[in-house]
């Protein structure tokens, strides 16, 4: 039987009263697999990652990570779960007052008692994995956007977490870095049996590495399946997204809110 690392059950979430951001989300992430969550901007993909990492709580429904319901456990238990997961932030979120080495070494220094020599070796290995050997002493403000994201990736995988959450890992990367990163995600998944959740817009690369895909629109899951099933789907919204068509069921416009109606009536 398939073992799920993450389970979202009947989940609703909103930041404000007048707009439900996530509606009745049911989603399972299988152990050791790469699951992609795709959809247009503002469809709630990043919010799902924030819910899984315990940064925010759902209004309704359950978020289960490693079989723990996050709304029913203590902060300390959430911290224990977080030690088993890594999150690559959309904009890297590197610590700007310390250099690349110190950034990558940060989780190792905080959570292990390894010697400085060993930590330096691990940092060098992680930087090599993301193709940034030789950047050890650079400060984050000396890195390009793409390089900063790769350093952030090296930091996220420093502890070889069981579950990796990638928020737009391919944005701002050149084609070579993009393929390197995609291959690294695949390699981590196959060699370490690491579970990965990939939030991305890059259809071609994602189809190549993902084991399962969810498609989201307006806060709902509109389709799911293996990359092959997604390719062959007849769902018009998914087809529109894959083909990048301007017209179709996918709305380019931001969903109208009650406050917007009130603004028009003023």
């Amino acid at each position: 039987m398939q073992q799920n690392v993450v389970e979202l059950e009947n989940l609703n979430f909103s930041y404000s009263e007048d707009r439900l951001l996530l509606k009745n989300i049911n989603l399972n992430i299988a152990k050791g697999k790469i699951t992609a969550i795709m959809g247009g901007s503002g469809s709630g993909k990043t919010t799902i990652l924030r819910l899984i990492s315990g940064q925010i709580k759902p209004n309704q429904g359950k978020v289960k990570v490693f079989e723990n319901d996050l709304s029913k456990i203590s902060i300390k238990q959430i911290h224990d779960i977080r030690k088993r997961l890594g999150l690559l932030f959309q904009f890297g979120a590197l610590f700007t007052d310390i250099n690349v080495t110190q950034n990558v070494a940060f989780p190792l220094l905080e959570h292990t008692n390894l010697s400085k020599k060993l930590i330096n070796k691990i940092v060098a290995m992680k930087l090599e994995a993301v193709g940034l050997t030789g950047t050890q002493n650079l400060m984050p403000n000396q890195l390009s956007g793409g390089m900063a994201r790769r350093v952030a990736l090296a930091r996220a995988i420093a502890l070889d977490p069981e579950l990796m959450l990638y928020d737009e890992p391919f944005t701002g990367l050149d084609p070579i870095s993009l393929n390197t990163t995609a291959m690294l995600i695949k390699k981590l998944s196959t060699s370490l049996n690491q579970t990965a959740i990939l939030v991305t817009h890059d259809i071609a690369v994602t189809m190549g590495i993902a084991d399962y895909m969810y498609f989201m629109a307006n806060g709902e899951i509109i389709a799911e399946g293996t990359p092959q099933q997604i390719k062959e789907t007849s769902n018009p919204a998914v087809r529109q997204f894959i083909n990048g068509e301007i017209t179709g069921p996918f709305q380019y416009k931001y969903a109208t809110k009650n406050s917007y109606q009130q603004y028009l009536e003023q």
């Binding site: 940064q55 911290h79 977080r82 030690k83 997961l85 932030f89 904009f91 590197l94 700007t96």
Partner: peptide, 18 residues
């Protein structure tokens, strides 16, 4: 404030560091 704005505090929190 800037660490908060650039998600550095969130990143720390997700790494199980308060």
């Amino acid at each position: 404030g800037l660490m908060k704005a650039t998600e550095q505090l969130d990143a720390m929190s997700v790494m199980a560091v308060d």
